[in-house]
Design a protein around this nucleic acid. Sequence first.
DNA 1: TCACACTCGCGCAAAGTCGCTCAGTCGCGC
DNA 2: GCGCGACTGAGCGACTTTGCGCGAGTGTGA
Lengths: 250, 250
Amino acid sequence: MLRETRHEKLLRLLREEGVLPVVEIARRLEVSEATARRDVSDLSGAGRLRRVYGGAIAREPVERPFAEEEVDDLPAKEAVAAGAAQLIRNGETVLLDIGTTTLQLARLLHGRKITVVTSSLAVYEELRADDEVSLVLLGGEVRRNYRSLVGQLTRAALREIYADRVFLGTSGVLADGRVLDTTEVEVPVKRAMLGSARQAVLLATPRKFPGTGSARVCQAEDIDMLITGQATDPATLATFREADVEVVQV
Amino acid sequence: MLRETRHEKLLRLLREEGVLPVVEIARRLEVSEATARRDVSDLSGAGRLRRVYGGAIAREPVERPFAEEEVDDLPAKEAVAAGAAQLIRNGETVLLDIGTTTLQLARLLHGRKITVVTSSLAVYEELRADDEVSLVLLGGEVRRNYRSLVGQLTRAALREIYADRVFLGTSGVLADGRVLDTTEVEVPVKRAMLGSARQAVLLATPRKFPGTGSARVCQAEDIDMLITGQATDPATLATFREADVEVVQV
DNA sequence: TCACACTCGCGCAAAGTCGCTCAGTCGCGC
DNA sequence: GCGCGACTGAGCGACTTTGCGCGAGTGTGA
């Protein structure tokens, strides 16, 4: 592996975990402890992380997508969520992915006579007090940073579910139609969601083009509808239209 | 554990508790008293806490987030829960049923290095802020008044799980050893739990003999251990002993 | 005041971690 | 093919942290 990408991977791990002992870093990067130490030392010298005896601590704030206090780019997300909410008819079962955009969508679903299935603990907390909405949680390991459920149990639960629509969030969409995510563990869950609904709707604000992300979730062909804003890169939208995706710009 | 993170954890504990004796700090941090003293001394030197003879006092304001909800017969439930907590070893996976007694048990599991699998949303809320405990939620429909997950999805999740012990609550136990519950929808989940653990432990305060309940969950033979109080009806206990159940009276 | 139990800080030995050196491996250009 | 530089993993001595024992210090109740 090229050193640079391993450095990036280490930083990503740290953003996800906050703190990691050197032994754990070595294990996760599949290198010797000596090398892990060298990497940590390099990045510490570059000021990208904080070195402590026995391990490393993230210098950049730990990724907390639901820092709740403020959602980045909120108006755009609300607009996309509103577009998505319009699609949903009474009596439907909808599958909601994790993320801030789908959380905005959940906020718009209060009082609707629908069934919401989700792996997002944030969505659960938003809707748990609402008697009208029937709420189903997928099982799985609790990921505290992301307030989500992941793992083998989540995928097993998805095999038992078939929803009318799934609303997927994303961290970035490339011009060739690839849909990305920043955290690898979420990818299998997102893929399983795609297979558990009649219609797949991707929610992506203009800033998500190209956005960020290192793991590929799926491509344009796997999506049925894309809901985005007016400012979204036209070339990418053309790619999606060619793949028979219905593009809605709110 | 890394020293820095242990320092943070100590400060968090202090914010939660206000005051803590050194012995208690050592126990909760799982280090020797000598080390706990050193940590307290470090942080006191840095002005992060106030040192007093025998312990430490938070300098930052104490968090008191939740008012404890009223639990009926609380002391008895706490005693039974304490007996159950003693059984659990580090590294174990435990399956927790819904109910107030198992919730008391969850309260005693803070800071333990274990995996807790549960269908109880109350247990999830109790443990979600605790980084030490690895938490797994079974999926299912959200039942708001019982703060639980039930249904086909919950049973499907249980088929994927095998725990070291399951801790079951109950609404009533009859003299012939039948274990009851008041709500029928929970029964299939409880039965599935019995099949998903090496050892089945029933938690039942003396008032649960005979208690209430119309639905039969299981019988004495299906249980491996019964944890109850001193005042429990001896005839019923005899039934359980005859069925090879280990009876613990706390 | 005094005895007693508890707590404190220090020295020590064991365990764990660090950074360094060194030899081996790999890719690359000549 | 062959040397070169970059990178890796193992070994080693130095350093840091940890738990325990000990003597001194501190709070409590008779």
